[in-house]
Amino acid sequence: MVKETVKKKEAELFGDFLVSDVLLEVSRLWRSEVSVKIEGITFRRNKHLRTELAVALFDSYLGFPLDEKPGNYAS
């Protein structure tokens, strides 16, 4: 009985949940500046702008914008 309930709950929660779908959505998120919804849950990217602050600091101290350097995390 307990096992059945757990199984039912799992199906309710995850349905046809696929990791590949998650990957696709998350990769979209990494490239975007907006939040995306995955399985009804909002993943937000830029609420605190930590990345932007870190990039601004390195820009300032190194004297060049990071997005002009190949292979960086700012682009």
Partner: peptide, 13 residues
């Protein structure tokens, strides 16, 4: 919570 963002850039450069 800012630390890894700084570290990643620092390490990569």
């Amino acid at each position: 919570d800012i630390d890894i963002f700084v570290s990643l850039i620092g390490i990569s450069l």
